[in-house]
Design a binder for these strands. Structure first.
Ligand SMILES: [Mn+2]
Ligand SMILES: [Mn+2]
Ligand SMILES: [Zn+2]
Ligand SMILES: [Zn+2]
Lengths: 137, 137
DNA sequence: AATAATTTGCACTACGATTGCAGGGCATAC
DNA sequence: GTATGCCCTGCAATCGTAGTGCAAATTATT
């Protein structure tokens, strides 16, 4: 698992046992996951440690947090462009109202929004709710 | 205060004393407000009653809820276009990272987003975080 | 006024997010 | 090899918001 270790090192994250496990888990997901998802998906993990692990990941540009309107924060791995300097990938997120899954749509970028005079943008997030491809079949 | 009463009646909301007070409060706000804001801004109110009042308002197209990423839901009055059939105003919301205020930007509509094949949209929300006009001065 | 329907207030529950702190692991210095 | 310090982990506990159940109060209907 040198691969995993290098991923962390590249983002200047100390590759501890716990963090390697968390990264491994995240790499296997196709949807954004909550802390509870991780807790259930991993053996013998403490919720708070998970919480702090993903927080560290987030601060180093390895994962991004997603607010899908459910009240439970979800997390997903970032595109390579993201660094410790910030998250530089402005893609749309999708929440399926049927299966309750949250997806990143990395190929769907958030369009430019022209703000009224005086406002200064720092971050933008766009969430679409609806039916995912699976649930529409 | 026939005015207030009519506003409620137009949306087919029973104009109780409590609801008139809540509507009056909302009309005076320039920002979106949380339940706690209302609770503090009004005398002698029960949080749960407020909760249910705005819920009713929301269901009848009088207010809309705003998720500004803080974890605390905010509420604001709708544009006239909204009815009991649904909220028909897709404007951008803005959260100021300095003063922590949340604004509706009714003149800034959410642009079209083309979803990948198979996805079906039901709702769209767009949140911009940054500095508001006041805080940038 | 009596009755029925709706609304309100209080108590209590649920749950995710977050903190404090003590103990464990690890690297480095001596 | 042992001591020192720093980072990481796990547990307990707290916080804050959302939400429910039910009885009492209010409002509408007859
Ligand atoms: Mn994403
Ligand atoms: Mn709004
Ligand atoms: Zn789905
Ligand atoms: Zn501001």
């Amino acid at each position: 698992m040198k691969e995993l270790e290098n991923t962390l090192l590249e983002k200047q994250i100390n590759p501890t046992a716990m963090r390697l496990v968390v990264l491994d888990y995240l790499l296997k997901q196709t949807n954004a996951v909550s802390l509870t998802d991780m807790e259930l998906g991993l053996e013998k993990t403490d919720r708070v440690t998970l919480y702090r692990s993903v927080k560290t990941f987030e601060e180093h540009g390895l994962v991004h947090r997603i607010d899908d309107g459910t009240g439970t924060t979800k997390f997903a791995l970032c595109q390579p462009a993201c660094t410790v300097d910030g998250h530089h990938d402005l893609h749309v997120h999708f929440y399926c109202t049927n299966c309750s899954e949250t997806h990143c749509l990395p190929k769907t970028q958030i369009p430019e929004v022209k703000l009224p005079g005086g406002y200064e943008r720092q971050e933008t997030s766009l969430l679409v709710k609806g039916l995912c491809a699976e649930c529409r079949k």
